[in-house]
């Protein structure tokens, strides 16, 4: 028996909207730790790792570990039927091949339930060890989204270079080149606008713009984004959800042959 109650359906809606274009089907894993998902895109270039911590839910009952295969597009469709301020309850009985989403309006005068078919998915879980990264940048999530979108219109790849002064995003395309430097800056009006650099060594890596743009669909989840890089390692783009957990995207770099 699984029963998870979350007061803000809006959060779950944003989570689904941010991953449904990257991953078609995925297993949601439910354990005492929380409601989590790890899935790669079909080309195995990008990976999404989501954790919604159990203590972030208003009610969290998960009798034993359970994995539920869902089509994320269909799940997003059902969640779109909830209002952002509805309470959502996710329910599944042991051995059932369906999951139920129940939405309750804040005044309790409208209660809806949507039952969705589960699917069997061969999940390929990657073991991702906790790593020390050579460079970590924290910056405005909306600024990062803007940069990825702007550079994506000019070139297919983005070079991200971190020095202790700041982070540089560069691209090159048929029509020309572009460079954006965000200098470290903590003297800001709103703390989410700060750009903070923690760096052991300068790092410069190349990534496909379209994946970075896809990751920025998670921008509504957090004011700041954390970008972690080490030489010849996948980049990690993380959106932390206050009290609830995180959405992390991993992207393998492009290398010179």
């Amino acid at each position: 028996m699984l029963e998870l109650r979350l007061t803000q359906a809006g959060l779950l809606k944003k989570v689904l909207e941010s991953i449904k274009d990257l991953v078609t089907d995925a297993n949601f894993d439910c354990s005492a730790t929380g409601f989590s998902l790890q899935a790669m895109d079909s080309s195995h270039v990008a990976l999404v790792a989501l954790l919604l911590r159990s203590d972030g839910f208003e009610h969290y009952r998960c009798d034993h570990n359970i994995s539920m295969g869902m089509n994320l597009g269909n799940m997003a469709k059902m969640l779109r039927c909830a209002s952002d301020d509805d309470t959502v309850t996710i329910k599944a009985d042991d051995g059932s091949d369906t999951v139920t989403f129940m939405f309750e309006s804040p005044s309790q005068d409208k209660i809806s339930d949507y039952e969705m078919k589960l699917m069997d998915i061969d999940s390929e879980h990657l073991g991702i060890p906790e790593a020390e990264y050579q460079a970590i940048v924290r910056m405005s999530a909306s600024e990062f989204a803007r940069i990825c979108k702007d550079l994506g219109t000019i070139g297919d790849t983005v070079i991200i270079s971190v020095t202790k002064e700041g982070v540089q995003f560069s691209t090159k395309g048929d029509i020309g080149t572009a460079n954006i430097i965000c200098r470290k800056n903590t003297a800001v009006d709103k703390k989410e606008e700060a750009t903070v650099i923690e760096m052991a060594e300068p790092v410069s890596l190349t990534f496909a713009s379209r994946y970075l743009i896809a990751f920025t669909k998670a921008t509504p989840l957090a004011g700041q984004v954390t970008i972690s890089m080490s030489y010849d390692m996948p980049i990690v783009v993380e959106y932390k959800m206050e009290t609830m957990g995180y959405m992390r995207f991993y992207l393998a770099p492009k290398i010179e042959e």
């Binding site: 080309s43 195995h44 270039v45 073991g127 996948p234 290398i255």
Partner: peptide
């Protein structure tokens, strides 16, 4: 020319 690496180049399947 740059080659796109896959995640399996870095991580192993559990």
């Amino acid at each position: 020319l740059k080659t796109q690496l896959r995640l399996e180049a870095f991580y192993t399947f559990n």
